[in-house]
Each structure stands twice: as C-alpha cells, then as structure tokens.
C-alpha cells in the first residue's frame, strides 16, 4: 500500500472541523494505488479523484465489496473548468445504505477526447443520467446502449452547460419557429 493521501480541503470550507475520510477511501487506495489521484473534503463530504480508465473498476469495487456496498448511484454529472485543462471533471455520486455514507468519485476528462466508460452495465439507472450529461456537456459515455439527447430537442446545436456556450443559444427563434411549424405540418400529414 502506498502512502496515505493528503486531504485537500476546499478553501470555502477552511476552518470547519475536519472529519475522518470514510473507510472506502483507504480500501480504494489499497486496491487502485496511484489510480486514486487525490482526496478532497468539503464540510465532511469527500471526493475522490481517480484516473478515468479506472473509474469503472473503482465503482464496481465500491458497489460489490461486502464492507462498503455502495449500491445506489445517486447522480452522474460533470463540471466544466473552461478554459483550464483538463477541461471536464465527470462526477459520480454514490450512496451506501450499508455504511450510510456518501462518496463522490471524479475523473478528469480532456476537451479533445471527452469520453468516459459508461456505468450502465453496473447501474441500469445510469442510462438517463449519462444521457443528460451527454446532452448538457457533450461527454461521450463509451459503451452506453443509446447515447442520445434526453432533455433538449434532437436538432439542438451544441451542449449548453459548457462554459463557452452562448447564454441565448445558437439557433434564432425564427429558425426554431420554422423547424417547429414544418415538423408539426409533417406529422399532421398535410405538407
């Protein structure tokens, strides 16, 4: 086993009483060694930064280890650190009903290859969460059975939660109106 990780406390939470990292962190470190890159804390909540290639293995371990049993994938999302590199940080929030702990796993993803392995084979519920993350950030979840937009219309250009996306969108209202009207007429069968 390598040296224990130093806990990085978020500046916003500096001065709040430190808490001990959950047992899961030590076990994860034991298993994945340097694949666990950093451990961050904010008011008693811990985030573990892993290599994206090891994320699926780490999550499988957290889910299946009888001491941990993180059997609930609460959320999958991403953070855009534009213009910093690596640009994205994909985030998985896991909950264990066994230890009553919440653990956040994160992996850095570069802009030129924004892909991470899909967790749908571990958690069927990851399906729509990953589609939303793809819709909003353009993260490609490799191995996802049906990676389409889920919230925005299919013709929507770009991924709006990226920091460099224009607030008011790219298509104008006139373009949208033409799209909506022509589509309605097509589907009503009088074109």
């Amino acid at each position: 086993m390598s040296e224990p990780l130093q806990v990085i406390v978020d500046p916003a939470a500096a001065g709040t009483p430190a808490s001990a990292p959950p047992a899961a962190v030590a076990l994860l470190r034991e298993r994945h060694g340097d694949g666990v890159r950093a451990l961050m804390e904010n008011r008693g909540q811990f985030r573990v930064l892993v290599e994206r290639g090891q994320a699926a293995e780490a999550i499988r371990f957290l889910r299946d280890d009888p001491r941990l049993r993180f059997t609930f994938l609460v959320d999958v999302t991403a953070i855009d650190f534009h213009p910093a590199t690596p640009r994205f940080r994909v985030t998985w929030v896991l909950r264990s009903y066994h230890t009553k702990e919440t653990l956040v796993l994160q992996a850095d993803v570069p802009e030129d290859d924004p892909s991470v392995p899909s967790m749908t084979h571990l958690f069927p519920g990851a399906d729509w969460l990953e589609r939303e993350c793809f819709d909003m950030f353009g993260i490609r979840f490799t191995g996802h059975p049906d990676l389409r937009r889920i919230l925005l219309p299919d013709v929507f250009p770009g991924h709006p939660l990226r920091k460099d996306y224009p607030m008011a969108g790219i298509m104008t209202d006139q373009e949208w109106a033409e799209h909506i009207v022509s589509r309605a007429q097509r589907e009503e069968g009088h074109d």
């Binding site: 607030m167 969108g169 209202d173 109106a177």
Partner: peptide, 13 residues
C-alpha cells in the same frame, strides 16, 4: 428567461 431552451414568446409559432 433569455436562455438557450426558451422561445421568446409563443407568438413565434
């Protein structure tokens, strides 16, 4: 809502 998913008034359609 001058934002990316919202049409600026229903009178466009």
């Amino acid at each position: 809502f001058r934002t990316y998913p919202v049409m600026q008034g229903i009178d466009h359609i």
